[in-house]
């Protein structure tokens, strides 16, 4: 027997009471996913993009499946642990590329998600990952930066180590090692924390380039040049096709047209040969490995229907997300490919 008698007694008493409480648990009429569902995310912030994007998707799913679903911002380590413990399907996770980049960079607490979990459907892209310089910087373009490092100049880039914020930096370093072999160590990482810390490094003159986002830094790019805080985009890591799907008005006062100036073909970062580097921050589901495959299918189906209706795309675009639904199997394959490409870069510059 699994539980002591008292607990079973207590449990069955509770069960009876729950019946008495009536509509305590919303039960889906059909489908293997039932009861209350908790979606944990890899971020602890309820003001950030992961939370925002997850609640858009989860709200739609809950309505479509007629279930109680709730997003909890528990953070990466706690989210993985919660997912590990629950194979019933009551705990799901939504996270982004950090989940495998953390593993590639060897960050403690990250495992290979393709082995340890089931990778679920992708739902959206945040196209905003960007690199910025001070408005009065001598570097006009990303090529200037690559050339300067190739010339032996030290260029300091403020990033948050071990993930999404570092991958663009790594690609840049890789490009320098290809175009100017042996000079890649001139590109130096300034390891720092939040967006405000990165901005601060720029204001303090402790960094020449920072990683940022279109959303958080757009207003800084519209300050006048004599303002100490003024910045300028030099590179958006997103694919050209991703930015092309953004709303025409872009974000704030920066139109889609202006944003397109900072992606391919205007800005290219080589990965050797014909290949160039791009990075879209994609949000996707992660499931417990032992979860009933029928649930995977159920969510895939529900999302297919939701995306077919077209309402969710509008909501996502309103919040500057690019809709990007791929059912589980396709998503898993696609993301595995993506990981392998970046693995090469990270190996190269070690």
């Amino acid at each position: 027997m699994k539980f002591p008698k008292t607990i079973v007694g207590l449990g069955s008493a509770a069960m009876m009471m729950s019946v008495a409480f009536g509509a305590g648990v919303a039960q889906a009429a059909d489908g293997p996913l039932r009861g209350n569902v908790r979606v944990v995310i890899g971020s602890t912030s309820t003001g950030g993009d992961t939370y925002q994007n997850s609640s858009i998707v989860v709200d739609q799913l809950a309505e479509h499946l007629d279930l109680n679903m709730k997003v909890d911002a528990v953070g990466a380590s706690a989210a993985f642990r919660a997912l590990d413990r629950d194979s019933r399907g009551n705990t799901l996770m939504i996270f982004h590329d950090q989940s495998y980049l953390g593993y590639l960079y060897g960050v403690q607490g990250y495992d290979n998600i393709f082995e340890k979990y089931t990778v679920g459907p992708t739902v959206a892209i945040n196209p905003g990952n960007a690199y910025l310089v001070p408005k009065d910087s001598p570097y006009e373009t990303l090529d200037d930066i690559i050339a300067a490092a190739g010339d032996g100049e030290t260029v300091r880039v403020a990033i948050q180590p071990g993930g999404v914020s570092e991958i663009g930096f790594s690609a840049l370093k890789n490009a320098i090692s290809i175009e100017h072999p042996g000079m890649e160590d001139n590109l130096v990482a300034v390891n720092t924390g939040s967006q405000s810390d990165k901005n601060q490094q720029l204001f303090d003159g402790q960094a020449d380039v920072i990683n940022g986002t279109v959303q958080a830094n757009e207003q800084y790019t519209r300050l006048s040049e004599d303002d100490q805080k003024a910045m300028r985009f030099v590179w958006l890591t997103a694919r050209q096709g991703t930015i092309q799907q953004a709303p025409e008005n872009g974000l704030g006062q920066t139109s889609r047209e202006q944003l397109l100036e900072f992606v391919e073909p205007n800005v290219t970062v080589t990965m050797g040969g014909d290949e160039t580097f791009t990075f879209d921050k994609e949000f996707f589901f992660l499931y417990n490995k032992d979860m009933d495959p029928a649930i995977v299918e159920q969510i895939d189906e529900a999302l297919t229907e939701i995306y077919a209706e077209g309402e969710i795309q509008e909501i996502q675009k309103n919040s500057f997300f690019i809709p990007n639904f791929k059912p589980s199997e396709q998503a898993s394959e696609y993301l595995y490919d993506k990981m392998s490409r970046y693995e090469g870069i990270i190996e190269n510059i070690k």
Binding site: A14, G35, N36, R38
Partner: peptide, 18 residues
Amino acid sequence: LMAVVGNLFPYTGYGFLF
């Protein structure tokens, strides 16, 4: 016990309640 009972009724808060 809160965690144990709560686990019987995932995310309903019944573990806490009872």
